Amino acid sequence: MLDQIPLEHILLLSAALFTIGILAVITKRHAVVVLMGIELIFNAANLNLVAFSRHDPVLMQGQMFSLFVILVAAAEAAVALAIVLRVYQHFKTANLNQIVTKEG
């Protein structure tokens, strides 16, 4: 099915996902929304890897690297959510602007 879709359309979709992810990371201050933005960035990179790997279907290097990125993203999401839960327990907020640490 991927052969029927032009590469330009896939790259435009990937650029849109990447842009939405960057905007979420930069503009939002809720920790979970920032994590979702990071996941969108990872998904945009995976889409590019799979789209470009169709040019060399024998080696499948893009699919294998994409699988590795998905595994790293899953581990990152689990660790990041655990950190967000601990921060919420300590500071009683998930808003990144309201988290204040003691200096000195």
Rank of each mutant, 00 (worst) to 15 (best):
R86T: 01
A80V: 08
A45L: 14
G37S: 01
Q98N: 13
I83M: 13
N46R: 07
R86H: 09
I38V: 08
S14R: 06
T19A: 09
A80W: 02
T19W: 05
H90A: 15
K102D: 15
A73Q: 02
L7S: 09
T93L: 04
H30V: 12
K92Y: 09
K92I: 00
A45W: 03
A16C: 11
V72E: 04
E76D: 08
F91C: 03
V69G: 06
S53W: 01
A15T: 13
V33P: 06
I5H: 10
I41F: 00
T93K: 01
R54N: 07
V32R: 00
V100C: 12
I38W: 02
L47F: 06
E39L: 07
V72L: 06
I99Y: 05
M36C: 13
V58M: 10
F65H: 05
I41T: 07
I70P: 08
A24D: 03
I83Y: 11
P6M: 08
Q98C: 05
S66N: 04
A44W: 02
L71M: 10
P6Q: 05
V72I: 09
A44T: 01
F52M: 11
V79A: 08
K28G: 15
I5E: 03
L12V: 10
M36E: 11
I38M: 07
D3S: 14
D3C: 11
N97M: 14
Q89E: 12
A75D: 02
L81T: 04
F68R: 08
V84W: 00
L11E: 07
Y88D: 09
E39N: 08
V50A: 01
A16V: 10
A82K: 04
I99R: 05
L11A: 14
L23E: 06
T93W: 02
A45F: 07
R86M: 08
G62L: 03
D56V: 12
L85R: 15
V58C: 07
Q61F: 13
I26V: 15
L81S: 06
K102G: 13
L13I: 11
V100H: 13
L59Y: 10
E103H: 11
A15S: 14
L17Y: 00
I83Q: 06
K102T: 12
